[in-house]
Simulated assay, not measured.
Amino acid sequence: MANECIPFYEPGRRITGHATAGVTGCRFVMISGNRQADGSISVAHATAATKAFGVAAYDAATGEKVGVLRGSGFIVPVTAGANLTANQRVEVGSNGQAVVLASGIAVGTVVTGATSGNPAQIALD
């Protein structure tokens, strides 16, 4: 079954990304290169402790287009890379997963927690 990220609340923006590597829905992505000729933004899973560009809306293979959900106000499911509880601040962990903020850059706040490997509801910064 493919992962699909459907926002719980949506005042933010949706943009089209171009996957420069395989992307899994409900994970943080970062800008991975220059804008494509068609205007889409090159994205791949965000690396640990970096600033995320947004969250992949669904799975995409290398070279495919992918929806990216970004902006303050979005509350979306993000795959937890560790156990998360409500009101914890999160950063990007490995493979674009959400982990408890330690030494990285805050990217959101947990609204509803989850165990590792499951979707947590994250309010994006």
Rank of each mutant, 00 (worst) to 15 (best):
E91L: 05
Q88K: 06
A52P: 01
R13Q: 14
D38H: 00
A57H: 04
I6Y: 10
V111T: 04
V43T: 03
G93M: 03
T115I: 09
G67F: 00
A98C: 05
N3F: 11
M1T: 13
F8A: 14
G12V: 11
G73W: 08
E64Y: 11
I75Y: 10
Q36D: 11
T47A: 04
F28T: 01
A56H: 03
A61H: 03
G54E: 01
V111W: 03
T109Y: 03
S32G: 12
I122T: 06
A44R: 13
V100E: 14
A21V: 04
A44Q: 11
A2W: 12
N118I: 13
V43M: 05
S103I: 10
N95V: 12
G113M: 03
T62Q: 09
A61P: 10
V68Q: 07
L69E: 00
L101S: 05
V78K: 07
C5V: 15
G54M: 04
S103R: 05
A49R: 12
C26G: 01
E64W: 09
V111Q: 10
Y9M: 13
T24H: 08
V99C: 05
F74I: 02
V99T: 02
N34Y: 14
D125C: 09
I15L: 06
R35N: 04
T85L: 06
N34M: 09
T109L: 12
S94V: 13
A123F: 07
Q36L: 05
I15H: 09
Q36W: 03
R27G: 00
E4M: 15
I41H: 02
Q97R: 13
A37W: 01
I6N: 14
S40I: 04
D59A: 02
T109K: 08
K51Q: 14
T85I: 15
V66T: 05
P7C: 11
P7L: 11
A21E: 14
G117Y: 13
F28H: 07
A60D: 10
P119V: 09
E91S: 08
V78G: 10
A60Y: 04
T79M: 11
A86G: 05
R70K: 08
A52T: 02
G22L: 05
V100L: 13
S72G: 12
R14H: 08
S42N: 10
G17K: 02
T24F: 02
V76Y: 02
V78L: 06
S103M: 11
F74W: 03
A44D: 07
V29N: 03
G108P: 01
I75H: 05
A102K: 09
M30A: 15
Q121L: 15
D38I: 06
L84W: 01
A102I: 13
A82I: 08
P11A: 09
T20S: 14
